[in-house]
Simulated scan of single mutants.
Amino acid sequence: MSTRARQVSAALAAGLMTMSAACGARDDTGGDSFTVGLLLPSRAVPRWEHSDRPLIEKRLKELCPDCSLEYANAENDAARQQQQMMSMIANGVRVMILDAADTKALRSSIQEAREAGVPVIAYDRLAEGPISGYVSFDGAEVGRLQGEALLKAMGPEAEKDYVVMLNGDPTSPNAAWYRSGALSVLKGRAKIGKSYEIRGWSTDNAHANMSAAISALGPDRIGGVLAANDAIAAGAVSAFKSAGVRELPPVTGQDADLEAVQRIVTGEQYMTVYKPFRSEAAAAVAMAVALGRGEDVGDIAETATDSPTTKRVPSVLLTPEAVTVGNIEPTLVKDGVFTVDQICTPDIRSACDRAGLP
């Protein structure tokens, strides 16, 4: 983990220790019991169900044992998520953690939550409307890490071959943030052959767009793929395989999905961006518990962010980290994201041996 990430984690841990003490004091009186609503955007990206949800559930029980969690997944449908928010308000949740399926479309629902006295914390994506807190990662840094890794992997070929950009869903402000960060590195140093927006961060849509780029540019002229996340990277890899390409160009990713890590081990994907989900979940729960008690989040938020509608939103922005085959063990394994046994299934055991994963 980077020095900056450790500093943020240490500061966050100190704030959480204070909150844990307060939680214990309230629990002794039996007066600390409320429901937190958690709304996640889809199942297309594995991290939501496999990492974020269980981490948030676990941390909520640690910080506030008598609190409960009401959960809903929007399945990439903003209208469904609006209905889920209204249902949670009707059910009496005291605070919501929201990863918006569409950050603009949920604006009116966030306003309704505010009018009902239910504060909303924007999780991972900066939703519009009167949100009370925001927890995410530095998206520009995510893009920069991807761009820098891609240039390093391409080497001198970066000046000759094309880069194909498979960007995220245009309804997510993070997608533009990642793209901007990547272009800050790639512009003037690589030729962008094709650039696509991948609706729903979908592997299938990424496959279709990558196939179109291969047909238009020719597989031999594509020197690298800037894939915004690991689901998109999976689509890019499958498109090259379908086109009969045996030597894949370097492909980036994000989220450190297990299958992506395995692709990195076997050489099908060059890198991913690891975002310590445990720290993100902990910060969101800390904010939720504080707001649920009517307390200020100033001790938790290290900075403030302006959204298109709301100024100075109390925010925690964590530091991402690039992961390639050479640092899987000191990042993902060390942090307990995956064990070596989870990564190194029998069919890739020899590749793990070459990668130095014991």
Rank of each mutant, 00 (worst) to 15 (best):
K104E: 14
G133H: 09
S109F: 02
A90P: 02
L126E: 04
I131H: 03
N91D: 15
G117I: 04
I110E: 11
Q111H: 04
M86F: 03
R114M: 12
Q83I: 05
E112W: 00
V95A: 10
E115F: 06
R94Q: 14
D124N: 14
P119D: 08
M88V: 10
A116E: 11
I97N: 01
L126Y: 05
E115T: 12
M85A: 13
I131N: 07
A105G: 02
M85Q: 09
V120L: 11
N91Y: 02
S109Q: 13
Y134N: 03
G133I: 04
P130V: 11
A100Q: 05
M86L: 14
D124Q: 10
E128G: 13
I131C: 10
I121V: 07
M96F: 02
Y123K: 09
V95Q: 04
V120A: 08
Q83T: 12
V95S: 08
R125G: 06
S108H: 10
S109G: 15
I121G: 07
V135P: 03
G133T: 11
P130Y: 06
E112T: 14
M85P: 06
Q83R: 10
E128W: 01
A105Y: 03
P130F: 08
P119H: 02
V93E: 00
P119Y: 00
E112Y: 01
R107T: 15
E128F: 03
R107K: 15
M86D: 15
V93A: 04
R94C: 10
A122V: 02
N91W: 00
Y134E: 05
R114S: 14
I89F: 01
R114T: 13
Q84W: 01
A113P: 05
A113C: 11
V95L: 06
I89E: 06
G117C: 14
A105N: 04
E115N: 13
S87C: 08
M96R: 05
G133D: 14
P130H: 09
L126P: 01
R125K: 06
K104T: 15
Y123N: 07
P130T: 11
Q84D: 14
Y134R: 04
M96A: 13
G117F: 06
S108N: 15
I110V: 15
V118W: 00
K104I: 13
V135G: 05
G129H: 10
I89V: 14
Q82I: 13
G117H: 04
A90M: 07
S109D: 15
M86Y: 03
A122Q: 04
Q81N: 11
G129C: 12
M88K: 00
M85F: 01
A116L: 11
V93I: 13
Q81W: 05
D99H: 06
E115M: 13
G133V: 05
Y134F: 15
M88N: 02
I110M: 07
P119L: 04
A113M: 06
R125F: 03
A122H: 04
V93G: 03
M85L: 15
V118P: 03
A127K: 01
V118L: 08
E112N: 11
E128C: 12
E128T: 13
M85D: 05
R94Y: 00
I97M: 10
Q82M: 09
G133K: 05
Q81R: 07
Q81D: 11
A101K: 06
G129R: 08
T103H: 08
E128M: 12
S132P: 04
D124Y: 02
T103A: 15
D99Y: 01
R107N: 14
Q84C: 09
M86I: 05
I131D: 07
R107G: 12
D124I: 03
E115A: 14
S87I: 02
A127H: 02
R125C: 09
